[in-house]
Design a protein around this nucleic acid. Structure first.
Length: 647
RNA sequence: GCCGAAGUAGCUCAGCUGGUAGAGCAGCUGAUUUGUAAUCAGCUGGUCGGGGGUUCGAGUCCCUUCUUCGGCUCCA
């Protein structure tokens, strides 16, 4: 007998070789019907795999992330089986689960797949799922595995096998399909009740541009038909939040082919919003001891030779601008730090001066690949809320903490709660590709980890993701359809101070090298606004929104009173517009709702007489009448609640 | 840059197998003077992304180019 410990701490005894599924069955039949996989001693296993020793078992269902991904992984095999049935001779790359569903990379040989084929594939998947074939795990020797895929002429699987050790190789078989796979899998295909092929795309084998491009088929499956429907509705809803769509509807920004792709044009409403964000940040930064500076949009080639960027990115950058007489080369600046380094160097610095925090809303230009441009999140010209902190090594942690405070203040003011913080450290197994001494790296990495901890950030740590010049802390958020974007970033840099030979005089009267911290709480205004739009679905916080109120006269008779109301509101620093069109009030309300303006003030005979306004909140409906000073107080309170002081 | 899809009025879209473009909204004009999510009527508006070709005839077929969308690769 073996002892099985369940997540609630209870222990039960079972015969040796009992499976998780049998454990589930002993608890309840309903549970057993829903078990997709299980976690045995922390490792995800097939629910049908015999357990041979005392273990802790955590049964996984659709409600567990790991249960979901197991179902999707198994679905990828099912997709492969369907594809093999429909397209004989097809070759398979890899087919992993992803955040929303799964994909399989396939080599279709000569033939092509079109969206019209999706239905056919989905039907086949469901047909095969209904056969309820079990997923059967098999240990195979490396030589047997090689001969199987050699026979099948699947060079991709053979390529994968090269990196695997004999004795650790397993196959999974369901129905007529056998795949090289570590597992685990769901007990049988019958758990898959609904399938949808989402899209196809090219993907290089092993992610390498030099390799052959395979066809990647994205799909998603569900254990219930209803859940697929709900998912599709959710996707539709998410599309309505897309910043490209809302940006157009709310007239925030646009693009022009004539101006050039990836070069956003900010429309008046968008520019006002952007300007407000800048002022907000400027104010917070000045409070935190930053010194605003201004530098030009171009820089001499020599600046980037010194910084090392010319060597590293010269080929990808925009081409240089040449002066007509001397033939000197200038580049559009791809970042602000080299300029700021030269500002640091403009006079001798003492240890007493540090830290020096130079801030600039610097517009930078980068050559992004054509296929990479994406709304406002990936553009060729953008403005960073950039700053560079020059400090002593012993100041890194304190400065880091202060920057984290600033980022959190920004996120709070904008109701950003759903972010993750990623600490990127260097790859300990390959320290040679990084610049800077081991000692300094350790200091910086420790400082980041300590400050993130001190600030109570929920972090993920990724080894090998550090920049070559230093470790960093990035704040990531997701867009409407779940794509992850980096917003705020804090990066330690040992490289530039070295290259620009920055120094300060220490208390020992010796020259020392300062450490530089790059930081941008928004990241770029463009990307930040994009994510913000999607985050709030275009309903911006009151302090930020382009227009806070719309005054709606009941008829043209009350346009004069409406004008007076707006003038008084302006005195309270409340911004708004009047809808003085010759339309009925219902129409004006509807149009204002669609524009997502937070407050509507309806004025007619009654209001003019009482010198009041009838307040209607966007999305909420009639909120009754009040005097203008009362209304101004309501607005003021709502804004103050968000813009609590930076501590 | 690579793979795939798309581009028709300011916006959202229709236009079957080729026979010289259509709707709703927006805009303009007029009527209406309105009480909490669309008042009515009339009118304007498109070299169908650009260029080339096939054809008696191209929004529709072919080639090419640009842009956009979904991915891949990249991201100082």
């Amino acid at each position: 007998m073996i002892k099985i410990t369940l997540p609630d701490g209870s222990q039960r005894e079972y015969p040796k070789g009992t499976t998780s599924l049998q454990v589930a069955l002993s608890i309840s039949e309903g549970l057993a019907r829903n078990v997709l996989a299980s976690k045995v001693n922390g490792e995800v296993w097939d629910a049908t795999r015999p357990i041979l020793q005392d273990s802790s078992v955590n049964l996984l269902t659709w409600n567990d992330e790991l249960g979901k991904s197991t179902l999707w992984h198994s679905s990828a095999h099912l997709l492969a089986e369907a594809l093999e049935a429909l397209y004989p001779g097809i070759k398979f790359g890899i087919g992993p689960p992803i955040e929303n569903g799964f994909y399989y990379d396939v080599d279709l040989g000569g033939s092509q797949l079109n969206p019209e084929d999706f239905k056919k594939i989905e039907d086949k998947i469901i047909e095969l799922a209904r056969q309820n074939n079990p997923y059967i795990r098999k240990d195979v020797s490396k030589s047997d595995a090689i001969s199987y895929f050699t026979e099948k002429k699947d060079e991709y699987k053979l390529d994968l096998l090269k990196d695997l050790n004999d004795g650790t190789i397993t196959f999974y078989e369901q129905g007529k399909f056998t795949d090289l796979c570590r597992g685990p899998h769901i007990p049988s295909t019958g758990f898959i009740k609904a399938a949808k092929v989402m899209s196809i795309a090219g993907a290089y084998w092993r992610g390498d541009e030099k390799n052959k491009q395979l066809t990647r088929i994205y799909a998603i499956t569900f254990p219930k038909e209803k859940e697929l429907k709900e998912y599709l509705i959710l996707l539709e809803e998410a599309k309505k939040r897309d910043h490209r769509k809302l940006g157009k509807e709310l007239e925030l920004f646009c693009f022009s082919e004539k101006v050039g792709m990836g070069l956003p044009l900010w429309l008046p409403a968008g520019a006002a919003l952007r300007e407000r964000l800048i002022q907000f940040m400027q104010k917070a930064q000045i409070k935190s001891g930053y010194l605003p500076v201004v530098t030009p949009h171009i820089g001499h080639k020599q600046l980037y030779v010194t910084s090392g960027h010319y060597e590293k990115y010269g080929a990808d950058a925009f081409q240089p601008i040449k002066t007509p007489q001397e033939g000197e080369e200038f580049f559009l600046k791809p970042m602000n730090c080299p300029h700021h380094c030269e500002i640091y160097k403009s006079k001798p610095r003492s240890y007493k001066d540090l830290p020096i925090r130079l801030a600039e809303f610097g517009t930078v230009y980068r050559y992004e690949q054509h296929g990479e441009l994406h709304g406002l999140t990936r553009v060729r010209g953008f403005t960073q809320d950039d700053a560079h902190l020059f400090c002593r090594p012993d100041q890194i942690e304190e400065e880091f903490c202060k920057v984290i405070d600033l980022v959190l203040y920004v996120f709070k003011a904008l109701d950003f709660n759903d972010y993750t913080a990623q600490i990127s450290l260097r790859d300990p197994s390959n320290t040679t590709k990084y610049i800077g001494s081991d000692e300094n790296w350790k200091k910086a990495e420790d400082a980041i980890i300590a400050s993130a901890k001190e600030k109570g950030l929920k972090t993920t740590t990724v080894l090998g993701e550090a920049a070559f010049y230093g470790p960093k802390l990035d704040f990531m958020v997701k867009d409407a359809i779940g794509r992850k974007w980096q917003l705020g970033t804090i990066q330690v840099d040992y490289n530039l101070p070295e290259r620009f030979e920055l120094e300060y005089t220490g208390s020992d009267n010796q020259k020392h090298r300062p450490v530089m911290i790059h930081r941008a709480p928004f990241g770029s205004l463009e990307r930040f606004v994009a994510v913000l739009i999607e985050h709030c679905a275009g309903k911006f916080p009151l302090w930020l929104t382009p227009e806070q109120v719309m005054v709606l006269p009941i008829s043209e008779k009350y346009n004069d009173y409406a004008k007076k109301v707006l003038d008084l509101l302006n005195n309270y620093d409340i911004r708004g517009l009047i809808d003085d069109r010759n339309e009925k009030i219902g129409r004006k309300i509807r149009d204002t709702e669609v524009k997502k303006i937070p407050y509507m003030l309806i004025v007619g005979e009654k209001e003019e007489e009482d010198q009041t306004v009838s307040v209607r909140k966007q999305g909420d409906g009639d909120a009754g009448s009040m005097s203008l000073s009362d209304f101004a107080a309501v607005i003021g309170k709502e804004i103050d609640g968000k813009l609590a002081r930076l501590v």
